[in-house]
Design a protein around this nucleic acid. Structure first.
Lengths: 125, 125
DNA sequence: TTCAAAAGTTCCGAAAATACGAACTATTGA
DNA sequence: TCAATAGTTCGTATTTTCGGAACTTTTGAA
């Protein structure tokens, strides 16, 4: 199989990070990799999210996160295990990820009535 | 003329802010409104930016920034004067804009050679 | 007035990005 | 070797973005 592309940390750009995290599905995926010590697999999210997402679409979302430098994917047997690259990104752009996660947390707390564009965040309610 | 839409601050979402600021042209526009006390007009940027941008495209960029809640536009005579809504956004998502601006600043300092293009990532590989 | 110029917006077709079903690849285990 | 599982890739349909041309508003003459 073609090896998966991971940018080195100095090639990670703010644009691509913000773009990756401007989609609620990708944010949900990233939050899981960032907060859980067990690595997330692609198929985990076919159940986790409220409306099921086709696996080809999920694969694309993982690819965007990977190529933006936010997660690292490693094959473990038949699965891909995805872990966050928070620590690396933090050295390159201190405070960035923390404030974004905090903003999303604030938003999901104060918004029982907010209409969400694509889907509600997994952490809602 | 149709009145321009401005979301109230409680309707501003993190998704739309990150999306708006994931484009280098919009970041350049926003930085100018955020850092200069004189408000920015649309036609300012037809000269300012390196490669000249058609004004219909610029108008769309201003619209994205406006509808994401990042700037406010007011007609002053024949021009539109755009001012940042940093202070409001700061009350809703404390620290968010500051860390994004800081990250872009860091990036531009450490990279005289970085290509400022959002299609960069796609052509990598 | 009436006209022209300046600043933006809107319209619309072309180009690019995204979504997702179907087909394909890689790995494991029977 | 075969089937099952987990993901990726391909191809097409939909959505978004780009940008030239035409339109709207406002101002400042003539």
């Amino acid at each position: 199989m073609k090896p998966l592309f991971h940018p080195s940390i100095e090639d990670v750009s703010v644009e691509s990070i913000l773009h990756a995290l401007s989609d609620p599905v990708r944010v949900a995926i990233f939050l899981r990799t960032a907060t859980s010590q067990c690595s997330a697999t692609c198929s985990d999210f076919q159940q986790v999210l409220e409306q099921p997402i086709p696996k080809s679409t999920l694969s694309q979302h993982f690819k965007v996160l990977r190529e933006s430098g936010l997660i690292r994917a490693e094959r473990k047997g038949v699965e891909m295990h995805n872990t966050s690259r928070c620590a690396e990104v933090e050295t390159r752009f201190p405070g960035l990820l923390g404030s974004i996660i905090q903003a999303y947390t604030l938003q999901s707390k104060g918004a029982g009535r907010r209409k969400l564009s694509k889907s509600r965040m997994a952490t809602d309610r």
